[in-house]
Design a binder for these strands. Structure first.
Lengths: 305, 305
DNA sequence: GCTTAACAATGAGAAATTCTCATAAATGAA
DNA sequence: TTCATTTATGAGAATTTCTCATTGTTAAGC
């Protein structure tokens, strides 16, 4: 069996001229090296070196072995270094799951800054799951999940990423646009534009309409944020978005934002991870960057408000 | 330090589901394997497996390690196999030195058959030497030398490859073409066509003309066999070649072959190798194939004669 | 040719490692 | 819960690898 030490031995012998020197660079005694090369040749059943007086020359077999060493040694060295980096939490692949479209919008701002801070960590964004994001997390398909839903489950661990407010977005010339706030009954008369997600999984349905047993008059699914805003602008419906996201897109004045209910709909954005991963350095960093960006952009728009 | 055994361990653990099974395929006790993976993780300072109940799952670091194993293991396995083949003399690189043009002609017939018989042995033909072919042999630039000159020297070993006769080749309408044999004096009146080799290294000079203190009237150097025969045909000179080579090219009838001296010039073709290499299987095979081809072709033409 | 300094090989025992055995702990299914 | 299966652990045996001390070689200088 070819061992790592054998590869290092043949490489060292080629680099240093003599056995004694090679032994020094390998931190071995001359004797140990002599024993080693002898036993290696015996094991392989082929001469690797030809003794020429006091010097050694590679045989053809030895040359082949040396080539293999040149090929394999750097791979192992690289691997060892990467693993050490992993051990220190510096390097890795962070697979991020997103379950909601606004989360996705928010992510784009975070990943850039994160990658700038931790260039050794690769990022992979996953938005399709067999069943749910939580299941993907516990099955190791993703490492963290950005979600507005807190579902405690064995092995999972949640942290709050940011608070935000869900608001109703309307065309500026919409009859309801003049109001300060809107009631469930008023919303129920409208056509709701949503991303392609079942109504039962929408906060606006679960926490605003459903408690008073109402359903929107209409429901249209749109694929993109741009399309959603455009249709809202044209009075084809209304939509519900985080305030920071909505106000960032209302610059033109053709859209207006209205509070949902008396106190507004306060929501939280969570980040979920496996219990066992919660101390990993690059995950901690991701959360820190994420919070910072959230505070920055969420605050910035509400200030303007 | 990543050892070969570690690579095999992570590969086996991935292939077999459980630690116990993996231990079996590795011919280890379950205990040994358990100890090993523990100490490996400790050494690397990073978890490679995540214990999930009674099963193991690779961490990110483990996945990286596994990829490295998949990359390196086949290389080492292949190397081991090649080295075994070297040990059994099945595989190698045979660097053949040729010092004479006719040797070169003869080689082309041999290498093809040899490569057919030993497809795992590479052949390299070397015809330029710093000093001499023998020096190239002892300096390990070549492994065998095909030569008509036997020069005993420490560490070198010769075997006879074939006997052959040097003959004079003339244009069919040359005045000397009617003779059965030719004397040194008769040859000395001619212009000799030779390959670009010093006269002092030519058999015809050393063993035919020189002993009676004669030199050819003229000496022209030509680069190729074809050119040499063409010039002979046109009466621009005469040349000396092995009988098997000459008669193979005299089919047209425009060239004639004449014996040199009363008994003809009998020569031997030798194959030289390093003393230490004389038992190597593919060298033995090369000699066998070389002799066989020599007997075949040398005989064939003399039969026709 | 003899001497000498540098290098390589060898043998024996020490040190480190790797393995097995015996046994305990943990897990998942019935 | 029990039970079969799998993993973990500790201790000592077996093996491997290393060092020390010594001897054998080699090339170069006188």
């Amino acid at each position: 069996m070819i061992e790592h030490s054998h590869l290092r031995i043949i490489a060292a012998l080629q680099q240093n001229g003599t056995l004694t020197e090679a032994a020094n660079t390998l931190c071995l005694s001359q004797s140990a090296l002599s024993h080693q090369i002898r036993s290696l040749e015996k094991k392989l059943g082929v001469g690797l070196w030809e003794r020429e007086g006091r010097y050694l020359r590679l045989t053809h077999a030895g040359q082949l072995f040396h080539q293999v060493a040149q090929q394999v040694l750097p791979v192992l060295a690289q691997a060892e270094q990467s693993l050490k980096a992993y051990g220190e939490g510096r390097q890795g692949i962070l697979r991020i799951g997103v379950e909601c479209y606004p989360c996705y919008e928010w992510l784009t701002g975070v990943t850039g800054e994160f990658m700038r801070q931790m260039p050794e960590v690769d990022i992979d964004i996953v938005s399709k799951f067999q069943f749910s994001g939580l299941e993907g997390l516990l099955n190791h398909h993703i490492d963290i999940l950005v979600t507005p839903d807190l579902i405690k489950q064995q092995g999972s661990y949640y942290e709050v990423l940011a608070d935000y407010e869900l608001v109703l977005v309307l065309a500026a010339d919409h009859p309801l646009a003049v109001l300060q706030q809107i009631s469930p009954a008023q919303l129920a008369a409208e056509t709701l534009l949503t991303f392609p997600v079942p109504l039962q999984r929408l906060d606006i349905f679960n926490h605003f309409l459903s408690p008073v047993h109402l359903k929107p008059a209409g429901h249209k699914v749109v694929e993109s944020l741009e399309l959603m805003l455009q249709m809202t602008e044209l009075g084809r419906g209304v939509c519900v978005l985080p305030r920071w996201l909505a106000e960032g897109r209302c610059k033109g004045g053709t859209l207006t934002v209205v509070r949902l209910g008396e106190k507004g709909m306060q929501r939280k954005l969570y980040i979920a991870m496996r219990e066992s991963d919660k101390e990993i350095a690059y995950i901690r960093r991701f959360i820190a960057v994420g919070r910072e960006r959230a505070d920055l952009s969420f605050q910035a728009v509400t200030e303007v408000d």
